[in-house]
């Protein structure tokens, strides 16, 4: 093979092969580096012990009608409210097109007297007030977030303020009539 031949016909195949090799090497290098980085990135995701604490059982027998409690689940509070007849009606009476994040009350509860929502404001993660007796419950009888002024209704839906979404409903199952497993 002559190195001094410069006619395009002789040169082309060699150049193509070299380009291919360069590209292939670069591609393998980039993908390889990416694969090597992934364990480090993934190590920052929730670990197995954090995931293992992902469910909690709650006894509901001591929560009177009209009362609400906070329980810890995955490091954040869950609000459990034993709703009164009036609160259930309020939640059902509102027209869906009036809501910021339209969702029927039925779709947010399994048993209509028990409202179970994650107690974290969907704006920037503060804990809304209104669970303990005597706390301000906002203009819609649910919860009120003091950080930036979001009002939630008796179904935990956002009604006014900067929060974009309703309070999240966690996955939960009633084990008996008076006990529930969250997560």
């Amino acid at each position: 093979m002559s190195q001094t031949v410069h006619s395009s016909g002789d040169h082309q195949p060699d150049e193509n092969r070299r380009d291919f090799l360069t590209l292939a090497t670069t591609a393998v290098g980039v993908v390889g580096t990416g694969v090597a980085l992934w364990p480090f990135v993934d190590s920052m995701n929730p670990s197995k012990d954090v995931l293992a604490l992902a469910s909690v059982e709650v006894n509901l027998a001591n929560i009177a009608v009209g009362q609400a409690v906070k329980v810890m689940w995955r490091g954040k509070p869950v609000f459990i409210r034993h709703r009164t007849e009036r609160e259930i009606n309020e939640a059902n009476e509102v027209a869906l097109n009036e809501l910021v994040d339209p969702q029927a009350d039925d779709a947010r509860v399994e048993k209509k007297e028990w409202l179970i929502v994650v107690g974290v404001c969907t704006h920037l993660g503060c804990i809304p007030m209104g669970t303990a007796t005597g706390e301000a419950r906002g203009d819609y009888d649910g919860w009120y977030c003091p950080c930036h002024g979001s009002h939630y209704d008796t179904s935990g839906r956002i009604r006014r303020g900067p929060a974009p979404k309703n309070l999240e409903v966690p996955t939960y199952t009633f084990l008996t009539d008076t006990s529930v497993r969250i997560g």
Binding site: V41, M44, N45, P46, S47, V50, A54, R74, G75, K76, V120
Partner: peptide, 12 residues
């Protein structure tokens, strides 16, 4: 969740 390493700001 990735930034937190969990489901809230915690030890991780």
């Amino acid at each position: 969740t990735w930034l937190w390493g969990g489901f809230s700001v915690d030890n991780p």
